[in-house]
């Protein structure tokens, strides 16, 4: 399935909706989207991943890039990851640095 990354900024929250399969061939699309919002004054970066069916370490590297590009003050959220994507985040210890929530409402609070 084709990969898409669509971003949207509301106030100080940037959302990127990811869908499809995120591997080394599609990670540059995600990275570009992160770069496009990196200069903005935001406090939260929220990744909506309900329709993200696959993620390799190429996706994890973009998460590292995001955090390093935006700085420690920007909180990173992953909303509704599918079971195996969550498994990858946990196996690599990313759940220590990224807040994983079931639904977007938990971010906006």
């Amino acid at each position: 399935m084709a990969f898409t990354a669509i971003s949207e900024i509301n106030d100080d929250i940037a959302k990127i909706t990811l869908s499809g399969e995120l591997d080394a061939s599609t990670a540059p699309i995600f990275k570009e989207e992160v770069e496009s919002i990196a200069g903005q004054d935001i406090s939260k970066l929220v990744l909506l991943t309900e329709d993200l069916e696959y993620m390799s370490s190429a996706g994890l590297r973009v998460l590292i890039f995001s955090k390093q590009k935006m700085g420690a003050d920007v909180q990173l959220y992953v909303v509704s990851p599918q079971e195996m994507v969550l498994d990858t985040l946990e196996k690599t210890g990313f759940h220590h640095s990224v807040t994983i929530v079931d639904e977007y409402a938990a971010v906006a609070r």
Binding site: S56, S57, I64, K67, A72, T92, G93, S97
Partner: peptide, 15 residues
Amino acid sequence: QTLETREAGGLGVHL
């Protein structure tokens, strides 16, 4: 480690 301080290599082989 937090992501701010991580090097990006080695994750693939770990997985």
